[in-house]
Design a protein around this nucleic acid. Structure first.
Lengths: 337, 337
DNA sequence: CATTGGCACTCATCAACAACGAGTGCCAAG
DNA sequence: CTTGGCACTCGTTGTTGATGAGTGCCAATG
């Protein structure tokens, strides 16, 4: 069928353009790929593909370049999963397993991901709201000054200092500690907040209330929810041309973690790898970049998102495989912890 | 004196070149600055300055550009401190005071510094080795699994999980906690390590020993010592020309925190602002960049270093003032904590 | 009706070249 | 030591023409 060949042509154009970074012409196409037709035929197909908006030419009489719509079709229908090699899998696993704490897991993931994809990688810290409280620890710095340490199931530790109106004895302290822990340990953050508030005694609860407020603050603190690690910015240097159009805005976006979180959040859909291409994304300035993300988390619950950003002209199959693989292994690590 | 005017010419060249980014010629010089002499005179001075290696011309018959040696002289002898405005000071103070914990202090400092200088900013986390232990907390996750939390005077929290061969009762636990705290709390890390090791009981000390080892590990862990925050990479986009020669290697260096730590460490000299210009630095690839750093820490002890990297062609007086100001305010914040 | 070879046409890229001008070095006079 | 004058250098800019990759269209073919 002609229709089928057209898709083959589109695929060939995408693959060639991704590897050569140059508009691809009809002649080069038939040479490099084994389509058994003449350049003229391909030209006809190209004209049709252009009419339908899948490809375009940067200027008259130059080769064709995929449009966002073209990439979209390629990703949705023309891509065959390209599994990681056994060696790569092993490398990922052993590297991630060397991590000593949550920070380390995240930073290693970012590094791994950026190396595998040769793109800028982002890993969101596991969100507080979907994790549970493992333990609350109170440390008296002075009799009226308390260090509150909140330990979460994801391994994250939040700490706050609170000044009290009254002085606490050791006994008070351990009593309070017990009460707080039995109230908060176990349930999801949102429920734990309720439970904590409920355990403030009706009379003379000022001190407890102060501590509880700090805890709640730490639990719901959006600043923590919004933490994100970024790495591989050096890969931006490979962009070569299109510096102004792609690198500059991206560099600026990387500083604004809020923007990145929106990019990550925008797409996260279940266990699948999500791809946002060029203008499909929410930011005008990033119209030359694509985002590949997926969720991760212990026990197959996605508590956070990780992914990469790169030029629309990227190796989608390879990138998607890498993102999926890293997410899988990070989830496994979190399972064990 | 001629000598005096020559220095004035050098200063003028540096200032003009920094602001225009273009080689500066004799005519433009006398116009823009109020030196009361003719272009010809300035040309003679320039020739002399070039002989002495303070300036150079990129190609015959173009304007002059300062050499590293020229910048060095400028920084050492021709720079007058340019104090921050009251408004700037206030902005720094209030922004930094909003921080809730150490991580936040550091990340705010980086952001502040990069905004003030419009350069890439780096802030090293306070080093463990020069800080003291404030508290050690033990939490039994299960009877034979212990979460060890180490709280340091700088506000940093390190946490480790340790699996024990034996099971611990609550009594054992609080006993151990007391012993460890009395041994380690107070002295500098290096001494605390000794004290901890000394308090392992000679017989049946296996459990204690295990915990102590984890603590010591956390204390001396170089990974923690080497933490550093980087920000303002978007400012690299302003480099304009000289992308390959300056931005690319810098972007790569930013990924390698080891490199940055070396840059920060290379110079830190007491309370003064240190400036490393171009080839004075340890890295060939960074020969087009300068580093401006200074130490900071509570009570005027420098426990860590912060600073910026930027093109050799930068506003040294302004940058130095900003670096010093931020260091001063961060130190003050750490004092209070 | 899809495919193909032929062919005229477009247009970005590159090299050669000339005009321009900013900036210099040098020299002789003040 | 300073200054005006002057010839010289050389990077920059704009023009022009040749080159060639690539296209679109058309008529011929299976």
């Amino acid at each position: 069928m002609q229709e089928e060949r057209r898709l083959a042509v589109l695929r060939a154009i995408v693959e060639d353009y991704v590897s050569t970074e140059e508009p691809v012409g009809s002649k080069a196409l038939v040479e490099r790929h084994g389509l058994g037709v003449s350049p003229a035929t391909v030209r006809n197909d190209m004209a049709a593909l252009e009419d339908e908006g899948y490809i375009m030419q940067p200027h008259t009489s130059a080769g064709r370049v995929p449009t966002d719509k073209g990439y979209r079709l390629f990703v949705d229908r023309l891509t065959t999963v390209k599994p990681m090699s056994a060696a790569e899998k092993r490398a990922i696993a052993t590297f991630l397993e060397g991590a000593v704490d949550l920070d380390d897991v995240v930073s290693r993931s970012v590094r791994m991901l950026s190396q595998l994809t040769r793109q800028v990688a982002m890993v969101q810290y596991p969100t507080l709201s979907r994790s549970t409280v493992r333990h609350i620890e109170l440390v008296a710095l002075t009799p009226s000054r308390l260090l509150v340490v909140l330990i979460l199931s994801t391994g994250r530790v939040e700490q706050r200092v609170v000044d009290l109106a009254t002085e606490l004895t050791d006994l008070d302290l351990s009593d309070l500690r017990t009460r707080l822990n039995s109230a908060a340990a176990g349930p999801v953050i949102a429920d734990a907040v309720e439970a904590l508030r409920a355990c403030v005694p009706p009379v003379d609860g000022a001190t407890t209330a102060a501590v509880v407020e700090v805890l709640v603050d730490a639990m719901v603190d959006h600043r923590s929810d919004e933490r994100i690690a970024v790495g591989g910015a050096a890969n931006l240097a490979r962009y070569g041309d299109s510096f102004d159009s792609a690198v500059r805005p991206l560099l600026e976006a990387l500083e604004e973690h809020v923007v990145l979180l929106k990019l990550l959040g925008e797409a996260s859909t279940g266990g699948l790898v999500s791809v946002t291409i060029g203008t499909e994304g929410p930011y005008e300035e990033l119209s030359a970049t694509s985002i590949v993300t997926t969720g991760y988390g212990p026990r197959d619950e996605a508590v956070a998102t990780l992914g990469i950003v790169g030029p629309t002209r990227m190796d989608y199959p390879g990138t998607m495989a890498a993102v999926r693989a890293v997410a899988r292994y990070v989830s496994r690590i979190l399972d064990e912890a």
